[in-house]
Nucleic acid binder design. Structure first.
Lengths: 208, 208
DNA sequence: AACGATCTTGAACACCCGTTCAGGTTAGGT
DNA sequence: ACCTAACCTGAACGGGTGTTCAAGATCGTT
């Protein structure tokens, strides 16, 4: 009777459910992501969800973790240690391109909106957001290290802004049904990156 | 039999429904914003919704227009013509404070997420977003007018970024249940504003 | 005072929801 | 061959959904 799976052990089925949940969220939105809809997407019976998760809320919390961690790991690995702002920008542009159409971006957005009515989900989304915030802070710190303006930059706040801009960018792009490329936005960041690289080492430009 | 109200004429009831819809969206999220829930919030019978709107989708499209236009008008009036970057920042900070807790911000967010499954709603949200984008472009253009770097600035892309950051900021703040103030983010923008004001008129700083 | 147009109500309709669970399937140990 | 534990199925349950509509309320005009 409703046995909990032995945790740890197995299972690709669990992951299959998570993928189906993410895909359904991205394609249909939170309201239409019913147990039946998710099951249809994944090609399994609705009942199986309740073998691996105790209820739908549980599934969505797990989905928030799944869709973000996956992506986070790749972002961290591919940006850590990059020193030139130009290279960092290119890396981000490339990562963004790869994620487009994967559906995880849209899923996160739906889950964020859904968080109003689920404290557990809200907590999970906050947690994931904090990880991104920290990653952004590290990237910014690497960029400005040794710059003349290093001590002027409010890193935490700037990181919040960057994360916000990134989320907003995805939001807007998703609104279009992913019709618009974010290429122009990355292009806009290019002069900034160039300026940062140019200033590197010039220590007395803003001390006046 | 289901007569359409003579348009134009009347009605504060219609607005009352829109307010109730926005409030319910903000407090309960899109999924729980049912006809009955909205009616309970507004203190009217569920049936009345269908006298003023042809269905719930219609109501949400109208709500997207209502919550954004209201706010947009105030933003435009209170920022147009401001020349000093510092003053603009203060105006935005003040406007943001006033809107906090009004619920319109959260409502827009819910509607944006809901747009995946409603083409008409998606179209309306896109339309409102375009208006904000245009406002941002005008503000930026005013700020950089006559600056040394005027010709370097990709105004359109920068405006997209600003709108994205603003949306993202609201998203993050809403996630907290509005526990966190965005004060620190505005603080982060202060050095930037100061720099813009400082550079005003110095025409040959970046021509190298 | 009576009327018609306008507005409001809430019970009723068919339908879909999250969740359960008795039963079926599978696979490995003996 | 048989047993057992794990896994999977989908019909069935009570309850909530969007929407309709007959009936009632309201009110300016006559």
């Amino acid at each position: 009777m409703t046995p909990v799976p032995p945790a740890e052990i197995s299972s690709s089925v669990r992951e299959n459910i998570l993928r189906a949940a993410a895909a359904t969220l991205a394609a249909q939105g939170f309201k239409k992501s019913t147990a039946r809809a998710i099951a249809r997407t994944g090609g399994f019976a609705p009942g199986v969800i309740y073998y691996y998760f105790s209820n739908l809320d549980d599934l969505f919390v797990a989905t928030a973790e799944y869709t973000s961690s996956d992506r986070f790991a790749r972002y961290r690995a591919r940006t850590e240690g990059i020193e030139a702002a130009r290279d960092l920008l290119d890396a981000l542009r490339q990562l963004y391109r790869e994620d487009q159409g994967q559906g995880h971006v849209a899923a996160v957005q739906e889950l964020t909106a859904a968080a109003v009515s689920s404290p557990r989900l809200a907590e999970q989304v906050r947690l994931q957001t904090a990880r991104w915030q920290e990653l952004a802070e590290n990237l910014i710190r690497t960029q400005i290290q040794g710059q003349a303006f290093e001590s002027f930059v409010p890193v935490g706040a700037l990181a919040s802004m960057a994360v916000g801009a990134y989320l907003g960018l995805e939001m807007l792009s998703h609104l279009d049904g992913d019709r618009s490329t974010p290429e122009e936005l990355f292009a806009a960041a290019e002069p900034v990156a160039a300026m940062i690289d140019m200033l590197r080492g010039q220590t007395d430009l803003l001390t006046d």
